[in-house]
Structure formats: structure tokens, C-alpha cells
Computed example of a mutant assay.
Amino acid sequence: MKYLASILITLLFYGCVGKQVTDESPEASEAENILELSDAQLASFTLSSTMIQEKKITQTLRLNGKIEVPPQNLVSVSSALGGYVKSTRLLPGMFFKKGEAIAELEDNQFIQLQQDYLVAKNQIENAEAEYLRQRDLNQSKASSDKVYLQAKADYQTLLINLQALAQKLKLIHINPDQLTVHNIKQTIPLYAPFDGFVSQVFVNTGKYVSPSEVLFELVNPSDLHLNLKVFEKDWGKIKVGQQLTAYTNSEPGRTYAGQAILIGKNISTDRTVDVRVRLNGGGSTLIPGMYMNADVVIPESTAFALPEESVVDFEGGKYVFEIIDKNKFKMRSVQCGEQGDGWISITNSEQLDKKKIAVQGAYTLLMALKNKGEE
């Protein structure tokens, strides 16, 4: 019995000791967040305070991206028929006007096509006359149906051939209505389809190009887009039609107004979403591939907030300092939300209700608390 009693007393003793250590741990942890300064230390820096308050916060997102050309504004120029490049004056970066001749091709098939059209045009006149004559004879039963139908088929075949040749001539920019035996051409021009600039040149004088071969790549700068990268956490804040201001790193003072026209529905490997923006007044000052920044103003929201200066970063967390009394301060953890206009919203604001919070001097208090921990 005495041995059993001894064991019980020993267990009770250690149980009490363990409980005492557990009860003291939170107090020890709490004490680490308490800072006391002397009057002399307080006099060495400026300290101001505020209380959490309801504010209207306008947030500005700063994004970056680059200028891109929509597919319909990047045109690959080729020839409908193959030929040799007789001349071209285009160089990468060169500007041109709509309707301007940008190259000239020559080939025997251009001459042959015009010849075939003129021959077919002459043949159809005789075929039409024969068709009309056989139709009249057939109506009076002076000609058989077989002869009439053959004349009709010959006429219609030549008509189809003539129309097909006319369309081919239009593809190489020759007007069939103005073509005569006196103005047959051995060269054909290629015209610029819009006002723009040259992105790439793939040919040189004397080179033979096939119909499938691209001669030039042209850019229409009238509708350049800015492709911005928006982080996943901010994706829901951007709406179609939202206004923004864009600028380059080299000329931050020169701004371009724009608006979001498309918002991506896919998150990339770097956790961003593409937002396509149409810029106003970019013109020739912006070129594809140019990097740009953009400021997007998010409509204001109401929240309980503190000045940004009052919130300090420490070991990956956000903290503020509560002023307990003149010389005593307590570091408190906070969860932050939107920020803008110099204010930052506090999502756990109920924990700071009616408490005085250090603003100016908060970072100095953090340094003093860290020095205390090192000691």
C-alpha cells in the first residue's frame, strides 16, 4: 500500500508540473509580442496613432503585357498565280498606303490568260449568233432539235469559260472589261490592301514565287491590341469594357487610354489570365512585341481599414501595433484585403475595434521588438 501511494503522489506531482508549464506557454508567447519603451526611447522617433475606421477604398491594379496584332490585322500577301518578282521596294518597317503597288510579277502565263480571254470573247460572239439562228429555225421546224441543242450547249460552254477567265483576270488585278488586243500586259502588280507597315519580306527581285508562297507579311496598325497578364487572384476584378491607362517604360509620361474587350477563361502555368485591351490613338507609335504597363482603377468598395503605413511585414505575416498605454505596445496579427488611396482593408477588424493603432513609427516599433527578441 505504501509503495502504491508513493507512485500516486509522484504521478500527481509531475501532472501538476506539466499543467503549470502548459498554462505558462501562452503567457510566454504573449509576452514576446509586448514592447515597453522608456520616455527617452519614445522621444527618439515620431509616433502617431489612429483607430480602425470605415473607408471607401479605390484600388489600382498595375499590370504589364505587350502589344499584339489580332489575326485579322496581320496579313500574308501572296500571288494568285505564280511568277517571277520583277520589282519590289518594300523593306521591313516601311509604311505604305492602301492601293499602293508593293511588287510587280511577270510570267508567260499572264500573257496566255489574257490571250485565252480575248479568244473566248471573240468565239462567243459567233456561238451566240449560231445559237440564236438555230433557235429560230427549230421553232419553225426547219432545224432538228439535236442541232439546236448542240448549238445551245456550245454557246453556254463558251459563256462559262469566258466568265471563268474573267474572274482569273480579276485575281491578278486586270480588268477584263478594259482588256483589248492593244493592251495585253506581261507583268501584274500587287497592291497594298490597307494603310500599314511591313513586318517581314520573304522575296527578292528575280525570285520565282508559287501561288502558295508568302511574299510579304503586312501589319494593319489601326487596331493593335495590348495583351495584359492578370494574376489569378485579381482576375475577377476585371470586367469587359473596363477603362485603363497604358504607358511604356521608356515614356511613362505618354499615356494611352484603352478598354478591356476580352477576358481569358484559361489560367496559364504562371497563374495568370490574358486580358485583351483595345488602345485608342496608338497609331504608328506602338509596334507588335512592345512591352507596356497599364493601370486599372477598380471601382471603390467600403471596408474597415487602416493607413497602409500602420501595417508592417514580419516573417511572412502582416501586423499592427496596438498602443496599450504611453510606453507599452502590443504587436497584433491582421488579415489584409484590398488596398488603395493609402488605405488597406482589415478583414479581422473586429479584433481591433476601439483600439489605438500606431501609424507613423510602426516600423520603428517592429525593429525595437525584434532587437528585444535577439537580446
Rank of each mutant, 00 (worst) to 15 (best):
L159F: 03
S210D: 12
L190A: 04
Q167G: 07
D195W: 04
A166D: 09
L224G: 01
I238D: 05
I188R: 00
A164N: 14
N175D: 15
S210E: 13
V209N: 02
L165Y: 06
F194S: 04
L228G: 05
H173A: 14
N227S: 14
Q167R: 12
I160H: 12
A164F: 10
Q200N: 13
F194H: 03
N227P: 05
I174D: 00
K233Q: 14
D195R: 01
A192P: 04
Y208G: 01
F197L: 07
P193D: 01
L171Q: 14
V214L: 01
I238P: 05
Q200E: 12
V219N: 00
V240R: 07
H182T: 15
D195H: 04
V230I: 11
F197I: 06
L224C: 04
L171M: 15
N204H: 14
L226D: 03
D195E: 12
V230E: 08
L226R: 06
F202E: 08
V214M: 06
P176W: 05
P189D: 10
Q167T: 15
S199H: 10
K229N: 13
L218T: 02
V198N: 01
T205S: 09
P176Q: 07
K237Q: 13
G236V: 06
S222M: 02
L159I: 00
L218M: 00
F194K: 05
E217Q: 04
L169Q: 06
N161M: 10
L190I: 15
L162R: 14
D177E: 15
A164M: 13
N183G: 11
S212L: 10
G206C: 08
I174S: 03
V219G: 02
D223Q: 11
E213Y: 09
P221F: 01
Q178L: 12
D223K: 07
S199W: 02
F216P: 00
D177P: 02
H225K: 12
V181I: 14
Q167K: 11
I188F: 08
G206L: 10
A192F: 00
N227Y: 08
A166R: 07
F202I: 02
N161E: 13
D177K: 14
K207P: 05
T180P: 01
V209W: 09
P176G: 03
I160T: 15
H182C: 00
T187H: 11
P193I: 03
K237S: 11
E217A: 01
H225C: 01
D195P: 01
V181G: 06
F194Y: 03
Y191D: 01
Y191Q: 05
L159W: 06
I160R: 11
F231L: 10
S210W: 06
K233A: 11
F202R: 08
N204E: 15
T180S: 12
L171E: 15
Q178H: 13
V181F: 10
